[in-house]
Design a protein around this nucleic acid. Sequence first.
DNA 1: GTGGTCTAGACCACC
DNA 2: GTGGTCTAGACCACC
Lengths: 131, 131, 131, 131
Amino acid sequence: MLITVDLSNPKPVYLQITDAVRSAIAHGSLQPGDRLPAIRETAVQTRVNRNTVGRAYLELEHQGLVRARQGSGFYVTDDGTERERALRQEDLDGQVRDLVADARLSNTSTERLLEMVRECAETLDRGDDHE
Amino acid sequence: MLITVDLSNPKPVYLQITDAVRSAIAHGSLQPGDRLPAIRETAVQTRVNRNTVGRAYLELEHQGLVRARQGSGFYVTDDGTERERALRQEDLDGQVRDLVADARLSNTSTERLLEMVRECAETLDRGDDHE
Amino acid sequence: MLITVDLSNPKPVYLQITDAVRSAIAHGSLQPGDRLPAIRETAVQTRVNRNTVGRAYLELEHQGLVRARQGSGFYVTDDGTERERALRQEDLDGQVRDLVADARLSNTSTERLLEMVRECAETLDRGDDHE
Amino acid sequence: MLITVDLSNPKPVYLQITDAVRSAIAHGSLQPGDRLPAIRETAVQTRVNRNTVGRAYLELEHQGLVRARQGSGFYVTDDGTERERALRQEDLDGQVRDLVADARLSNTSTERLLEMVRECAETLDRGDDHE
DNA sequence: GTGGTCTAGACCACC
DNA sequence: GTGGTCTAGACCACC
């Protein structure tokens, strides 16, 4: 798994790191029992301070996705994959609720909203093809 | 125009106020040249501090929707209605983009996403019926 | 002398009226001893409330430019013309001081500032020719 | 960068702070990506309330010069330097237009106005020499 | 630690 | 009356 960090991105660096790890867990490139890249290693590779990487890993531990083993490293928990998917689904559900509510507030019909989502997805697809 | 504030709503009070005014502008109940209710008046009516209402109005001024006249009040700008509609569309566009991007990150297909939006809208509709 | 009021102008109506009267005094079309148009007359002619015109005249009285005579009307004071010119000069002096100070703050040289003033005046002249 | 506040200055404190930051951006001592001194830090250093500093920073954010990152601080935006220079030019242009227009209203010739500006600048220069 | 929101209350300028 | 500025201090979210 590869972790990339963009310092010009307004998203905090530690969140960029947790997102990268979470994506790897969601995609299966990191599975229950797998070890995360060492903090030092990730710090060197991303040119980020070790404390920042440590904080990102600690955050993942708080979410129950990984577990630290003294002197050994961070490992994806047994139910890490499930938890990750559940968390992600919750986030997406919340976003959809917010979007639908805001569309109401701006007098945008459900049909128009669905169209906007479809168009946006297609634009992204076309962009992906070219990359 | 009526401004209501819900303190249990996680959305900051000052944004609830800007939203109420923006809706009134969008719906035409506040038109270019119209005066907003005075800061003190809105403060009393919503039981919110004057400063908070003032901050909401300042925000609206920064968005170019209203303009303060010293000693007189806040008035909807000449292009307030257009600006309001343009801003609203921008906001929704951004939300849709974020949602679609996040759906990708969680391996949610566009079809599934559209379904989620449709379901959420229907749930809201049913809720509206009962109220 | 003609007083015109533009309701869409952000400048308060009563100030538009005092400005018109002051200009008439400065230009000499209203001289010491001359009577101002009656409040009622001006109100009808400008389609503005009588109270607003009254307030404008009161303001002019506070500035020592005119004097009310019970049951007769408002008259330009003996030293109205001088006072008007002195007030106007003061205002302009203050504006010049502010401008020069602000130019300093924005690293604009005096030469550049003089050029800006000259250009702006020429543009106004050209605009005036065409009207 | 050093921010100084003069309570005897009629200019509102929060604008004195925005001016100081804007000057630092214009001069290059604050560049895109640089962090502004923390709100609390500036508040202590200038002996001004936190809210007032916060309001100044918010103003800068509305002008697109800086951007807040939750829990991290305020950072000069990528196009902050350009925006700052464009805003500054706009401000000065507006002031010059107002001055020239007011000079017309008081029958002051362009030549006389230029002279006033020149004199005022020289007086300021002499004052600066003595300091 | 950082910024974000809110209140209560004072005082001011313009009107 | 109207909005504009400022303080002191509380509490919160994110970090």
